[in-house]
Design a protein around this nucleic acid. Structure first.
Lengths: 203, 203
DNA sequence: GTCTATAAGCAGATAGAC
DNA sequence: GTCTATCTGCTTATAGAC
C-alpha cells in the first residue's frame, strides 16, 4: 500500500486519534476505533502513548493550540479595528467551515479538563489584550466607536463567529437548511458579522 | 430520613440523572454514579428505565423541551422587536446563570443524536418563524430597522446570549475573571446585548 | 517496531430473595 | 418496589513472540 512520505505510524495515530476524539470526545472514543482508523494494531497505541488519557491530552493540546492563538495574532496586528474584525471573521469562518466539530470539541473537553488549557494557550502573557484595550480606548476617544470593554468586544466577536457552528444541527432543523444552504448562510455572514459589529459600535 | 412529599424514587432518579448526564454526557456518565446521587440502588435504575439509553433519552427530551420552546414563545409575542429582544435576553441570561451547563449539554448530544430533537421541539409547525419574518419585514419597510433575514437575526440573538456560557471557562481564563466576576459580566450584558442588536439594525 | 493473545477491570444489565 | 449478588460483555492495558 502506498503511503505518504511522512506517513509514519506516529503521524497516522495522531491523525486517527484527532478524528475520532473530535467526533466522540474522550469518554465516547474507543481505542479500537482509533487503531482501525489508523490501520494499525491497538497495541501500537499503547506503545507510542502509554494510555488513552495521554493520547487524548496530546491531541487536545495540539487542537487547542491551533484553534486559539490565531484569535490573538489577528487581534494583535497594528491595523484599524474594522480591518481586524474583517480578518478575524473571514479567517475563522473559513477554518470552521473546514472543521465544524472543532469548537464543540474544545469547549466540551475544556469544561471537564480546564487544566489542559492553561498550558496550551499563552494568552495572558502575550500582552495582546492590553494592546486591544488601548486601541478600543483610542478609537472611542477619537469618536470612531462607542466605548466597549475588551471582554465584551471579544465575547461579541467570538459569539457571532463561532456559535452558529456549535448550533449547526439546530439551525439546520429550525430553518430547514441542508448542508449546502448552511454553507451559504455562513458565507453570507462573512460580510454581515463585521457590519453588525461595526454598526453596533457607531457613535 | 425525611424526604420531600413528592420525593418519589422516580423523581429522585430523574433529578440525579439530570445532574450527572448534564455534567458528563451520555458516554461519560455512570449508572452507579446516578444511583449514588439518587441514594438508591443501581438495580432500581433498570427497574424504572430499562436501560441507560432510555433514561438518557427521557432526561434529554425534558431538558430540550424546557430549553428551546421559550425562545419561540417570547419571539412569537405581539410586541415591538426591541421589547422582544430585551425579554429574550433577560430571560435567557437569568436561566443560563442558574443552569450554565445546559447549552453545552444540549448542543453536544444534539450533535450525536439529532433525532432526539425532532420530537422535543415543535418549532417548524408553530408558525412563529413566519410571524417573525413578517415583523422583520414590516419594521424594515417602516424604516425602523435595516432588512435582515430571520435566520441571521436569530443566529445573532442566540449567539450573543448563549455563547458566553459555552465559553465560560475560556473567558474566565483569558480575562482573569472569577465566578462572581463572570456573573457580573453576564449581568452587564443583559443591558448591552439588546443595545448591540438594536443599534446594529439602525438605519 | 509490530503483531497476537490474553489478562484485568469495569460497567451495564439481570436473577432472585425479601 | 427494593435490595444483594452475579453474570456478561466490552475496553483498556500488558505480556511476550517475532
Amino acid at each position: 500500500m502506498y503511503m505518504e512520505p511522512n506517513s509514519t505510524t506516529e503521524n497516522r495515530i495522531k491523525e486517527a486519534a484527532r478524528k475520532i476524539f473530535i467526533k466522540k470526545g474522550l469518554a465516547g472514543a474507543r481505542m479500537q476505533e482509533i487503531a482501525d482508523e489508523a490501520k494499525i494494531n491497538k497495541a501500537m497505541l499503547h506503545y507510542y502513548y502509554r494510555n488513552k488519557e495521554q493520547l487524548f491530552k496530546k491531541i487536545f493540546e495540539e487542537v487547542a493550540a491551533e484553534f486559539v492563538p490565531k484569535i490573538f495574532s489577528i487581534l494583535g496586528e497594528d491595523r484599524p479595528l474594522e480591518v481586524k474584525v474583517q480578518d478575524f471573521v473571514s479567517h475563522y469562518l473559513d477554518m470552521l467551515t473546514r472543521n465544524p466539530f472543532l469548537p464543540l470539541f474544545v469547549l466540551s473537553e475544556l469544561r471537564s479538563q480546564p487544566e489542559f488549557f492553561e498550558n496550551a494557550v499563552g494568552i495572558k502573557r502575550s500582552g495582546i489584550l492590553e494592546k486591544l484595550a488601548v486601541q478600543l480606548k483610542a478609537e472611542a476617544k477619537a469618536g470612531h466607536i462607542k466605548p466597549i470593554s475588551p471582554a465584551n468586544f471579544m465575547a461579541n466577536l467570538m459569539s457571532l463567529s463561532i456559535f452558529p457552528f456549535l448550533a449547526q444541527p439546530m439551525l439546520q432543523l429550525i430553518f430547514s437548511m441542508n448542508t449546502q444552504e448552511f454553507k451559504n448562510f455562513i458565507e453570507e455572514r462573512k460580510q454581515l458579522i463585521p457590519q453588525f459589529i461595526m454598526s453596533s459600535l457607531k457613535t
